[in-house]
Design a binder for these strands. Structure first.
Lengths: 224, 224
DNA sequence: GAACTATACGAACGATCGTGCTACGTTCGG
DNA sequence: CCGAACGTAGCACGATCGTTCGTATAGTTC
């Protein structure tokens, strides 16, 4: 019977702290996280919060893990329900944009912010952020490779994945910094143009939204 | 005679501080800037540095201005030497990538980092960052519009500018976070494919580097 | 029951933060 | 030459930081 009431209580407290920590970090960064602030906002003692994680760095690493779980549940997992190939590739793009636009984290994409924050600093936090960011980049790439292998798109999979990831992150950056939703609309147009199927099977995945606005003379695709 | 020895001395000190401040901020963020750290590293007194700017927020704003000047001198100004239209559009892309890759700021693009840092925080620093970022986005857009007007490319100028800006920022993010130069190569391939001229006049601007690697079967452009 | 473990608290630590105040040069305008 | 302006340093303040210590409490295991 691995039911330990003490550990269960501790895990509940850890979840409570981490739920707040991911929101704070998405706005003020992982360095802006402070034990005292978290304790005050959650009406706990600073030393109690500290004891739950052992050090600030461990709190930061736990915050990254918690954010990664939330990210996966909003972006990666639902995308797997779409059919492999182009539908899934469209789904992961749309799910990512929706995840950013709905402000699952109040500061926009968590990993965009902490990635920019720790990109040039060494240490375990940097490595954890890079690993998390890299795992999602790998997921996009594998999904793109699948779409190419299945003949749904004719492109270099790695380059296509890079472009799609770039468009999403740019939309997040512009939208959070300047407000409004224009950046998301631009990203969706660019992604749609890039993911026009080569032949048939245009079946939209789980969340491919906005089938509207097919007009707009020359949606920019035949520039070669 | 606008020669005031006192003000001249003060400006020299301000430049000394700001030169260090932009480098520190590009790695540790504008919030990671501290008067004490700057004073210690520059062997000045903390109160002296403080008096030069009046407040930390003023130091942050001055740091943004100093970084903007450096950015313009490396990216915007040299791009204006290229011929209007497609050559200039190619030049601004390449100059931006070179600015990021050469680590003009040790933490990569200054405005990418502080943009992500202050995107969701209110205040004057946010507004200054948004204005600086927006002014460069406007420059790309205007350059793209010029290329479209001149018939050098057939595309939606706003969307094209968004895509190019997105590709550059993604390359910066990936390269700084993970090291290596692969992200820059991917961005250059994507930009080159996007900026294939519609007819003639492919004259490369001032800094369009890497005319190599024209091979690579199907450089992904005819996916529509 | 005792022995042990884990959560949680309160108090305190040394360090650093941004910010004042004071004082001393240097340099300007009159 | 004199008073004002500016740069610069020294010192101290209140606040907050991460961390440590001692202790009380609740749960598990014997």
């Amino acid at each position: 019977m691995p039911v330990d009431g003490r550990i269960a209580r501790g895990d509940a407290s850890r979840r409570l702290v981490l739920r707040r920590a991911v929101d704070v970090a998405s706005v003020d960064g992982l360095a802006g996280l402070s034990l005292g602030r978290l304790a005050t906002e959650l009406e706990l003692s600073k030393s109690g919060v500290f004891a739950l994680f052992g050090s600030k760095e461990e709190l930061q690493l736990a915050t990254i893990d918690a954010a990664l779980e939330i990210f996966r549940s909003h972006v990666v997992t639902p995308s797997r329900e779409a059919a492999p190939g182009l539908p899934r590739l469209r789904a992961v793009c749309e799910n990512w944009l929706a995840y950013s636009e709905k402000r699952v984290f109040p500061g926009g994409c968590f990993f965009f912010n902490v990635g920019a924050e720790f990109d040039a600093r060494p240490g375990r936090v940097h490595d954890a952020v890079a690993a998390a960011s890299g795992s999602f980049a790998a997921f996009i790439r594998e999904t793109a490779e699948e779409a190419v292998t299945l003949g749904h798109v004719d492109a270099d999979a790695e380059l296509l994945a890079f472009e799609l990831h770039a468009l999403g992150r740019a939309a997040n950056a512009d939208a959070v910094l300047n407000g409004g939703t224009r950046a998301y609309a631009l990203a969706r147009r660019a992604i749609r143009a890039r993911l026009a199927s080569v032949s048939g099977a245009p079946g939209s995945g789980t969340a491919a939204a906005s089938p509207r606005r097919s007009g707009r003379a020359g949606d920019r695709e035949g520039s070669a």
